[in-house]
Design a protein around this nucleic acid. Structure first.
Length: 579
RNA sequence: GGUCCUGUAGAGCAGUUCGGAGUGCUCGCCACCCUGUCAAGGUGGAGGUCGCGGGUUCAAAUCCCGUCGGGACCGCCA
């Protein structure tokens, strides 16, 4: 090593020692006769003092330097209690510039908001900044912790292929041309789902992997075209076994990284409860404001808008004080989400329904007088309503609830609220009279639905579970189907013929002929978990080299066009020869 | 595929509503001064295709149309 010590580890006990440090010039404070340099390396920062001006004169921010000198206690009164190394400084005898830095495109020190594209274009400088550096270190610690937990339970870590077969369901695949088979294409895996089930057939019994997944879909703040899952699959287990392992992992991560003891067991609610109480399959339980079902209350109403299959309500505490402009803003907000609007009534100081607003005058006296009690609202509150199909109304109110939580400051930003959401439907309507799998077609029904799901697919429930933290789905999984007859029935429900099933999933069905064990598993959205643990709003801050929201990488310029020669060689335009 | 926000000096912003000389702020950069700072301080200076193209106008950062980049959301993401 070209250094003897790391800057962030020096303490008063090192005083008197001659040390050599190597790192970057974080800050320079030039007083003429005396110059202070904050020398930063991966371990932290230490102050270097120079009295010979020529040593320091040409140093600039982010120069990479080596410093040799003596560690000394700072003069009395000059200690800096803000810094771990604040009791000492290094009196430089020699400074060597290992490499110079051009003027910076943005400040490395000092934090502050920056545009994403300039951060990504100079990602290596962004990584020097404390926020991203912290995020990457959190991520690394979490990976080690996960390995600890999984190894303690004798899980086998297996790497599955990145070059695999395109499957028609789910997200769009990223495709890779194959030079040796012109016109044929690999797909990058959307997840290792099928491979991990094959590993169970293979008798591995306990599998886990930090798996990179690829989906060619549009972006969100919490989505990247390539992302990471902690992928887990276990044989001979029931749902409870999977949940227990997942809770141990989550408990370990939260306790060791943010010092929070996750209460266990993590509470469970059914999907049906989550939708009716919170209007979401990933409820944020850091605050209340639960939805109220008002369908019965308005069963006889004369108000046309409320003559709907479902009427729901959510209360905005203190919302009656909103200006007309703000209330109109909610209508705009609702329309931007595809709703026709968001009906509301205001409660006056006496707790009575105010006659102002476009809805109140359509309600009968009886409807108005009992309303506050029916929705649990108090004087000064605003009550929002949505009417329509249960799904649409609840979805709108669920989104309104989150908006209320944010606008009214009801969310405790330091809180952690975990829940399992279990028993999701197996199927949903596909919009053209048929059914499609909510999760994936290998998800087993709950035991009580094992025989009857084909007869009432609209209400059949799956043995599936999602883990939710602060309104984020951080993981999900299910017990899988392991019997060919049941799998056949699921394919029947979703309209997949034997021929289609064979052509799409034939290799899995073939494998399941050879004594497949009962099995189930879970996968965590690792990037989102890391963002939560690192306290960041976007997963881009916990990914070393993320793509911008356009899918482009401002650092490398990828993706790029290819040359005609590359195009020919890759066989992109070739017609596949029948095999 | 759709909606919204945004683009002004190396960085972060104000100026755009209601057109009038690139007008300004903070940081950074360059030079000089300065012996105890830790966001050091002081003096002076440099730095601009107001994203790009077109239009309206005597006159456009500002208004209109188009386009590109960044961000958020809806759809999508088994």
């Amino acid at each position: 090593m070209i250094r003897t010590h790391e800057a962030g580890e020096l303490r008063a006990s090192d005083a008197g020692h001659q040390v050599t440090l190597a790192g970057w010039v974080a800050r320079r404070r030039d007083h003429g006769g005396v110059v202070f340099i904050d020398l930063r390396d991966a371990s932290g920062v230490a102050q270097v003092v120079l009295r010979e001006e020529d040593l320091a004169h040409d140093l600039r921010a982010e120069f990479c330097v080596r410093v040799t000198g003596e560690v000394r206690r700072r003069p009395a009164g000059n200690e800096n209690p803000e810094l771990p190394t604040g009791d000492i400084e290094v009196s430089a005898g020699e400074i060597e510039v290992l490499s110079e830095s051009a003027p910076l495109p943005f400040p490395v020190e000092g934090g502050g908001e920056l545009n994403e594209d300039v951060r990504l274009r100079y990602r290596y400088l962004d990584i020097r900044r404390a926020e991203v550096a912290h995020g990457l270190r959190v991520r690394s610690r979490a990976a080690y912790l996960t390995a600890d937990v999984m190894r303690a339970h004798r899980f086998v870590q297996v790497e599955t292929p990145y070059l695999t077969r395109s499957t028609p369901e789910g997200a769009r695949d990223f495709l890779v041309p194959v030079r040796l088979r012109p016109g044929n294409w690999y797909a990058l895996p959307q997840s290792p789902q099928l491979f991990k089930q094959l590993l169970m057939v293979g008798g591995i019994e306990r599998y886990y992997q930090l798996a990179r997944c690829f989906r060619d879909e549009d972006f969100r703040a919490d989505r990247q075209p390539e992302f990471t899952q902690i992928d887990i699959e276990m044989s001979f287990v029931s749902r409870e076994d999977v949940l227990e392992l997942a809770e141990e992992l989550v408990g370990r991560l939260w306790s060791e990284i943010v010092g929070y003891q996750v209460p266990r067991p993590i509470p469970q609610m059914t999907y049906a409860d989550a939708m009716s109480r919170f209007g979401s399959d990933k409820p944020d339980l850091r605050f209340g404001c639960e939805l109220t079902d008002m369908t019965g209350y308005f069963a006889e109403t004369g108000f046309g808008v409320f003559q709907a299959p479902h009427v729901g309500a959510v209360v905005m505490p203190g919302g009656a004080a909103q200006s007309r402009r703000e209330l109109d803003g909610w209508q705009e907000w609702a329309r931007s989400r595809g709703a026709r609007g968001l009906a509301y009534v205001l409660l006056d100081a006496e707790g009575n329904v105010s006659s102002s607003g476009p809805v109140a005058r359509h309600l009968s006296e009886a409807e108005r007088s009992g309303l506050a009690d029916a929705v649990g609202a108090r004087s000064g509150d605003c009550v929002f309503f949505a009417a329509g199909t249960p799904a649409a109304a609840r979805s709108l109110l669920g989104a309104a609830r989150l908006e209320i939580g944010n606008r009214c400051g009801l969310i405790d930003r330091s809180a952690w609220a975990f829940t399992w959401v279990v028993d999701a439907p197996m199927f949903e309507e596909d919009g053209s009279g048929g059914w499609t799998a909510v999760h994936h077609p290998f998800t087993a029904p709950l035991p009580e639905w094992a025989d009857k799901f084909p007869d009432s697919p609209e209400s059949a429930l799956a043995d599936a579970y999602d883990i939710v933290c602060n309104g984020n789905e951080i993981g999900g999984g299910s017990i899988r189907i392991h019997r060919a007859d049941m799998q056949r029935k699921v394919f029947d429900v979703i309209g997949l013929s034997a021929q289609e099933a064979t052509s799409q999933f034939g290799f899995l069905l073939e494998a399941f002929k050879y004594g497949p064990p009962p099995h189930g598993g879970i996968a965590f959205g690792w990037d989102r978990v890391m963002a939560l643990l690192a306290g960041r709003d976007t997963i881009r801050d916990v990914i070393a080299f993320p793509k911008a929201a356009s899918g482009l990488d401002p650092l490398t310029g990828a993706p790029t066009p290819i040359t005609p020669a590359q195009r020919r060689e890759a066989g992109i335009d070739a017609t596949p020869t029948p095999s």
